[in-house]
Design a protein around this nucleic acid. Structure first.
Length: 579
RNA sequence: GGGGUCGUGGUGUAGCCUGGCCUAACACGUCAGCCUGUCACGUUGAAGAUCGCGGGUUCAAAUCCCGUCGACCCCGCCA
């Protein structure tokens, strides 16, 4: 080793020791007669002192920010009053006897110290410099710790980490695949896995009983702050279990992980909501329960009278959001909301605490009172009302609740988990004119709903569960079908042709017939989890080398054109790009 | 595919709406000098910007208009 200690290691007790340190020059303070260098590595910062009486001073004054240096020196306890309480090593400094410049550095395009706000494209282009910054390093350290904790937790519960292929066949999930052309089979393609879904189920059939993997998954869809084309899942599957077992396991794992990494106590059990309930109360399948407000249904009370002066239509509903402290809402702000409702083919109105409302004269006295009495109206309260087509309306109210809540509820709990269960098994695809799996085709319906499978598929609920944290979906899973006859019924429902089934996942159907244990599992979005744990609002902040919204890696320049020759070998010719 | 925000020395911003006083301001950083106890050192001075790019309007464009490129946020898409 070129060093005896790291830059975060030395303490008072080490005073007098001869040490050797290596690291990056973080800051320089040259007082003419005495020179201070802050030396930085992953572990911290240690102050070096060079006196101009020492020969080494000339050499030391040559260093510049981000130079990599090696110093020999003696640890000295700092005199009274010169201690820096902001550094873990602030009680000591190194009196430099020898200094070697291991490598110099160009002037960095942005300042490393201070985590100063910097344009993200510059940060990503010089990601190696950005990763020297404290903040991103902390995130990656947390990411590592959480990965280790998850591995330890699951290993202790006798889960096996098994690797599954990246070069594989398209899995039946909804997203677009990334394709990899095969040289040995011209005209054929591998797909990068959207998730190891079928492999983990096959591992259950193999008798592994408990499997997990912290694994990259690939989806060729548009990016968002919480979505990258390649992302990491904690993929889990178990045999001989029921919904409750997975929920218990994951709750215990989250409690363990949050306690051991952040020292934060998370309380079980996590609230559980059915999908239906979540949509009704919060207008979303990933509600942020830190916001206390719920959406109420006032269709019965107001529906009839409202349709007498306003548009009704199919699936008409009236929804309300009561804000006990909504007083600051200016007329202007309310008009903006009305405008937005209109853009969504909805109508919006309100009742202010004192009782002023554009609705007052339009409703009968009885209905008006019925509505006002429903709520504990104080002076400061505001009731927001909207009506129109039901699912559209719920969506709108959900985003309203989220936005206003984000803004107004300041002292939120840091972490609020919940489970969303019992998603519908299928939903109607208008374009394709058929039923689609909501989760995937191997999701088990609830036994009690099996009778509806042929008559009213939309009524069938599935054994599904999503884990939600602070309004983000961070996990999704289900109990799978383990019997061939039921699987066939689902394929029929989805209108999958025998040929299609055979071609897409015949290998899996075959496996299913060789003794498949009842099983189920879940996949956690690891990047999102770390993002929330570190308080970031983009997963790019917890990924070492993320891509831009256009899927470009600004560091390497990927994706990039390839040599004509490479394409030839693969038997690929390119179409002319249309302008 | 669509909607929106942004783009000004190395970095972060001001100026833009309401064109001319902009020969583009400020802070940080950089470079040079001075300084023996700083830790966001101080201090004196200096260098550094065709205002993303292209076109247009105008006597005159960082500023107005059109196009284009890039980054970000969102809808669609995606668990």
């Amino acid at each position: 080793m070129l060093r005896t200690h790291t830059c975060g290691e030395l303490r008072k007790e080490d005073a007098g020791k001869e040490v050797q340190l290596t690291g990056w020059v973080s800051r320089l303070r040259d007082h003419g007669g005495i020179l201070f260098i802050d030396l930085r590595d992953r572990w911290g910062i240690t102050q070096l002192v060079v006196d101009n009486k020492e020969e080494i001073y000339t050499q030391a004054s040559r260093v510049r920010p981000e130079y990599v240096i090696k110093v020999k020196g003696v640890v000295k306890e700092r005199p009274e009053g010169l201690v820096n309480p902001r550094l873990s090593t602030g009680d000591v400094e190194i009196v430099v006897k020898d200094l070697e410049i291991l490598s110099s550095s160009l002037l960095p395009p942005f300042e490393i110290e201070g985590n100063k706000e910097t344009d993200e494209s510059i940060r990503l282009r010089y990601r190696y410099l950005d990763l020297r910054r404290d903040k991103v390093q902390k995130n990656l350290i947390l990411r590592h710790q959480v990965a280790q904790l998850i591995r330890r937790f699951l290993s202790e519960k006798e889960f096996l980490e098994v690797e599954t292929p990246f070069l594989t066949k398209s899995t039946p999930e909804g997203a677009r695949d990334f394709l990899v052309p095969s040289r040995l089979s011209p005209g054929h393609f591998y797909a990068l896995p959207q998730s190891p879904q079928l492999f983990k189920q096959i591992l259950m059939i193999s008798g592994m009983d408990r499997y997990f993997q912290i694994v990259k998954c690939f989806r060729d869809e548009d990016l968002r702050a919480d979505r990258q084309p390649e992302f990491t899942q904690v993929d889990i599957e178990m045999s001989f279990i029921e919904v409750e077992d997975i929920i218990q396991l994951i709750e215990a794992m989250m409690i363990y992980v949050f306690k051991e990494s952040l020292g934060v106590a998370v309380d079980p059990p996590f609230p559980r909501l059915s999908y239906h309930e979540a949509m009704e109360k919060y207008g979303t399948d990933k509600p942020d329960l830190r916001i206390p407000w719920e959406i109420d249904d006032l269709t019965e009370l107001l529906g009839q009278e409202i349709t007498s002066f306003s548009r009704g239509g199919n699936n008409f509903a009236v929804k309300a959001l009561f804000l006990p402290q909504g007083e600051d809402f200016s007329r202007k702000k309310l008009d903006v909301l009305s405008e937005r409702a209109k853009e969504n083919s909805l109508s919006l109105s309100w009742v202010k605490g004192g009782g002023s409302s554009p609705l007052k004269n339009k409703l009968s006295e009885e209905t008006w009172q019925g509505m006002v009495n429903k709520y504990p109206f104080g002076e400061k309260a505001l009731l927001l009302l909207a009506w129109g087509e039901r699912s559209n309306l719920l969506n709108f109210m959900g985003s309203l609740r989220f936005e206003l809540g984000e803004e107004w509820i300041k002292d939120k709990k840091p972490f609020q988990f919940c489970w969303i269960t019992d998603f519908p098994l299928v939903d109607w695809n208008e374009e394709e004119n058929r039923w689609d799996s909501v989760h995937h085709p191997f999701t088990s319906p609830r036994e009690e709903d099996l009778d509806f499978l042929d008559s009213h598929p939309e009524k069938v609920k599935s054994k599904t569960y999503d884990l939600v944290l602070n309004g983000y979906e961070i996990g999704s899973g289900s109990i799978r079908i383990h019997q061939m006859d039921l699987q066939r019924r689902i394929f029929n429902l989805l209108n999958l042709k025998e040929e299609e089934i055979e071609q897409k996942f015949g290998f899996f159907i075959e496996a299913l017939q060789y003794g498949c244990p009842p099983h189920g599992g879940i996949a956690l979005g690891f990047d999102r989890l770390i993002m929330l744990m570190s308080g970031e609002s983009s997963i790019r902040e917890v990924i070492a080398f993320p891509k831009t919204q256009k899927g470009v890696c600004l560091l390497t320049g990927a994706p990039a054109p390839v040599e004509e020759k490479q394409l030839e070998i693969l038997g690929i010719s390119l179409q002319k790009q249309k302008k």
